[in-house]
Design a protein around this nucleic acid. Sequence first.
DNA 1: TATTGTTATACTCTATAACTATA
DNA 2: TATAGTTATAGAGTATAACAATA
Lengths: 144, 144
Amino acid sequence: MATRTDPLTLEVVELIGTVVARYYEEYEQAAAAHSLTGAQARVLGLLSLEPMPMRRIAQKLKCEPSNVTGIIDRLEVRGLVERRPDPADRRVKLAAPTEKGTRTARQLRESLDFAREPLAGLSDADRAVLRDLLRRMLGMEPSA
Amino acid sequence: MATRTDPLTLEVVELIGTVVARYYEEYEQAAAAHSLTGAQARVLGLLSLEPMPMRRIAQKLKCEPSNVTGIIDRLEVRGLVERRPDPADRRVKLAAPTEKGTRTARQLRESLDFAREPLAGLSDADRAVLRDLLRRMLGMEPSA
DNA sequence: TATTGTTATACTCTATAACTATA
DNA sequence: TATAGTTATAGAGTATAACAATA
C-alpha cells in the first residue's frame, strides 16, 4: 500500500499527533489528581469494569505479568484494590476494586473530560461524521 | 460547560481513546525497531527539526531538566546526538543530532505510518472533513 | 542574585529469568 | 509438564533537592 505524503494527509497526521499528546497529558493529570500513576489509573479503570486475574491485566496492559504484581501491590496498600482467590483455580488471584477503589475509578472517569469537552464545540451531525471517519480509519464496519 | 454523556459522544470518546492507544503502541514499536525508547525517539525527532538547549527539550517533553541529562547521555553514547557549546551563553549546551542521528530520525519518521496508512482508506474529501473536525476539536481556527 | 546544566537520590514502570504452588 | 503468580535484578523515565559554572 502506497504511503500518502500529500500536504492534506500530513496535516491530518499532525493533528492526530496533537490529539494523542493532549489526551495523554490530560489522562496523566487526572491520575495525578488522585495521586495515581498512569499505569495505576489504567489498571483501576480496567478492574472497575470487571475483576480479573493478574495474567489478564498484563495482557490488557501489554506488559509482562511480573510488572502487574507491583502495580497491584501499590493499589492494594492504598486500599483501592484487593486480591481474591479464584474458587475454580487455586493458582489464580482475582484483582478487584474495593468500594473506595470503585469510587476513585468513577471520579477518574468523570474527570476525563478531554474528549468530551472539546466535542461540545461540534454539532450532533459533526459528531456523527467524526464517528464514521474514525471507525473507517480504525478498520471498523460502518454500522457497528 | 455542560459535559455531554449521550451515546454518540461517548462512542466518539471511546474511538479517540482507541486511536490514541494504537498511535502510542505503533510509536513505541517504531522506536524499539531502532533500539530506542519512546522518550529517546521523541527527543531525537525534536532535535532533527532544530538543535536546542537542554532546558528547552525539557519544556517540550514537559519534564524536569534533570531528566534530559540522562536521555541525551544515552543518545550521545550511541553517537546519535552531540552536545555543542552555545557561543552566545557559555552556560548553555545545545543538543544536536549527528549525521547518524539525522538518518535515524528520518527513518523513524518514515516508519511512523500509523496515521497515514489507515488514512489511505479515506478519500481526499473525507480527509478534508476529518482535518476540519479535528481542528475545531483542538480549538483551532477553520483556516489555519 | 538568577539561570543552565548536572549530580545524587528515590520511586515507578519495564523486561528477563528463576522460583513456588498449583493444575 | 505446564501454568499463575511472585521474587530478584537491571535499565529507563520521572521528580526533588543541592551543586558548580556562568550570566
